[in-house]
Design a protein around this nucleic acid. Sequence first.
RNA 1: GCCCGGGUGGUGAAAUUGGUAUACACAGCGGACUUAAAAUCCGCCGCCUACCUGCAUAAGGAGCGUACGGGUUCAAGUCCCGUCCCGGGCACCA
Length: 918
Amino acid sequence: MKPYNSKAYHPILGRGLRYEPPRFPDMDSQYNHKTVEATAQSQWRDTNAYLAIENDPRFPKGKYYACSMLPYPSGKLHMGHVRNYTINDMLVRYKRMQGYNVLMPMGWDAFGLPAENAAMKAKVAPAAWTYKNIEVMKAQSQALGLAIDWSRELATCDPAYYKWNQWFFLKCLENGLAYRKTQIVNWDPVDQTVLANEQVVDGRGWRSGALVEKREIPGYYMNITKYAEELLDATLHMLPGWSERLRTIQENWIGKSEGVRFAFPHDIKDANGKPIQDGKMYVFTTRADTIMGVTFVAVAPEHPLAVEAIRRYPELGSKIHALKLGGTTEAELALKEKEGVPTNLFVTHPLTGKDIEVWVANYVLISYGDGAVMGVPAHDERDFAFANWYRIPIKQVIEQDPKIARWGSPSSPGVSVAPPDFDPSKWHDWYGSKALTSCVNSGVLDGLHYEQAVSKVVELLSAKGLGEKKTTYRLRDWGISRQRYWGTPIPVIHCDDCGVVPVPEKDLPVVLPEHHIPDGSGNPLNKDEAFLKCTCPKCGKPARRETDTMDTFVDSAWYYMRYASPNAETMVDARNDYWMPMDQYIGGIEHAVLHLLYARFWTKAMRDMGLLKFDEPFKRMTNHGMLLNHIFYTPGSHGSKNFIPPTEVKPTHDEKGHINGGTLADGTRVEYGGIGKMGKTERNGVDPQDLIDKYGADTARLYVMFVGGPEDPAVWSDTAVEGAMRFLRRVWTYCADRAAEIANAGAVDANALSAELKATRFELHSALKQSNFDYERQQYNTVVSASMKMLNALETVKPGAAPTLSREGASILLRTLYPVAPHITCKLWDDLGFEKTEGSLLNAKWPEPDAAALVQDEIKLVLQINGKTRGEIVVASSADKATIEAAAAAADEVAKFGEGRAPKKIIVVPGRLVNVVV
RNA sequence: GCCCGGGUGGUGAAAUUGGUAUACACAGCGGACUUAAAAUCCGCCGCCUACCUGCAUAAGGAGCGUACGGGUUCAAGUCCCGUCCCGGGCACCA
């Protein structure tokens, strides 16, 4: 075959047009992503290529389950999905070639509010809207070429799925893990529903953004706090595959606090002459060592003692109510003064017996602990500010201990000076310190350090029956009732005689009627007689069905286990024990608290019911970064912004090359709004479908992987997409130009290669080594660059010059590039005949670098003199330390830069450098 | 305020974890091919300079460079201390 020369003049085509060498067997000369992707996808479909079977004997290394957080079927995929699923896809393709039995499933988080909102807008039933969206998004996922086992697909709005939400809920009711109570809840007036604490962000609904109100409503709760300690302990010790960042978020959320709960006795009686709270005002403190410094106690405005104060002194009412104002919202809090009202009610200090006045304070929260705190102004910053304002006495009870602390100043570090004095007019951080301090002015506690003092206090209090060690958590029980239509019906029945009665297991699922179209007037189930009317399972009398539905976080708490046992006759079956725990979970960081905590809790609850045997569902967790894009807008009236999609803007740059604005096609000037998350509001999203149509799925995948590390945020770039496309075209051209020689060549004989070809082969295997390293640590951006390095090296070998090396190169390049760009590589693999000798690329053996190829006869070592790079020396790769030292000492640079001094010391870093110290 | 991350060319980023800083790309510049453009291919591309060699705004060399200031080390983007920014989490939590 005649070597291809791009500069050759073609007798028929003329200059500059591509000369077409004969193809083998009948390959297209140009990369056409549409035909390539269609061919590959239909082949995968026809062979059921991604069907996962438990204990599949083809894969000896055991299972590998990698799963992406299930998407909400909002209408279309967005680029975040593309990134998420490509990471997932690369993992399973890579693992499969290594011999693992992989599973990558997909499903739909199909219940939820957006469907109801869309329904109201478009007058379609949420069910119809949802199923339509699922269809579209499934087609898009397939167009991306994801290695999904679609036989396990599920939608959470399918009765066959949510039946098990209901079943498990009933089990939890039976054993007390779920319970019904009436509580003040967060009510979202826009979405007309109850929100969990986690769903209230800065006092607003996480989805609607509406200011949340407090309402009293009966509902169901999951007792997640029962697992608080286990969840925390596992967070700290059992999740090595989670990022520290993620673990910290969960740890903070659980919010464990160890301290002492004790009572101030009192004989304050209510209107009926009954002692309030049985004459004990409980507080919680983490600083029991400062108990002798108590000069007041403070209660929340809702506390029974505050209520009693209002009863006795009605003029306090408006002042106390005023303390509730200002809310708990964001910035106001920082500005809010510590305010309070004295009540003229007194409690008794449990250790000193002194009378202590009760204040109502705006910084005490009824929802935390007992809604009351002891006031130790000397050693708590808030109490300090409060006491200073209201001229309450401040009593110092701890000091920096000169025996254990060493104070210094910047000029004389470490030199002990006198311990700092306590100054009641100004707060210093050490007042609140637990470390390096000991008690003073505290009677029996004097001289004790924090831990000793706390133990002593507990001993004294428990002797009087007034206190004990106690651990509290920030985490609250999970309220799962939602006053919504589009969710899993809570399977209970209300009977006038029997009260709340669970639906018998045999009657599950309680099927949600799918034909309703919400109109904003509340839950349509409340008007659905056919749904409402039922008979009481206990007494058989007419009864009314519950119309609340479950929080959709229930759906997502365990779906990944249903993937593992699709169509099971039970909630999960033995197949779940095969696939779970999941080896790798992938999703956005925005679910770091809610979803991940609920899923972990659900797993533990299922474990304790004997449904599974493991403790934690997700061994490894990857949180892919957000996709960002530039934001452009034209100023509207009243400071509003008319956002312009970046695709319509030609950006302009300042003298430093940074974008500072842009122009539209008609010349209109637009403002630059910086970089932000791709979204509908800013109109800066990129539609994956457009990308797939224009460049193909492989280019889209390659781009999102190459743009940065999987966990880093990534900024969109049109030109970088073109670059990704260009690379794939070069891969195609490389193979097409060498098709025949690659198909016919044998194995590489390394000894027969010229020095130049040996160098190329060294580059190839070095890049492969790097690629394998980066695959293992899931750093896919450099996996892509390793493939580019391989191609750069291989292209230096002209067609026909070294068929065996070209064949080896193509086989390595195609295999390492395959997880990123499966379509083009599969097509080339088949076209070049690899499929005939090595089988399908899907199951091909993962390439390992040839150790011999990585050995060079001579190696270059960096030569440093006194730590500065001055040149390099070339030595035989087999050279020992002494030889290298001698060669380095003899180098010209040593004479030149060493100023004639003899080497004092020579440090040799094998294979890298040699440093001569003179 | 506390707790986690992070700060590297014009841009996205890399540096196998203490060993040649800027790999691989994008953009830009120059060239080849073309009537021309696109595409493709080749080359250049951190900063500074009357600091040195050179006619040179060519090419070398020296110097400086990973937010800033110190330190440890033969050797620091990487480790330590301090400071400043950016992102995230938590927060009148007792």
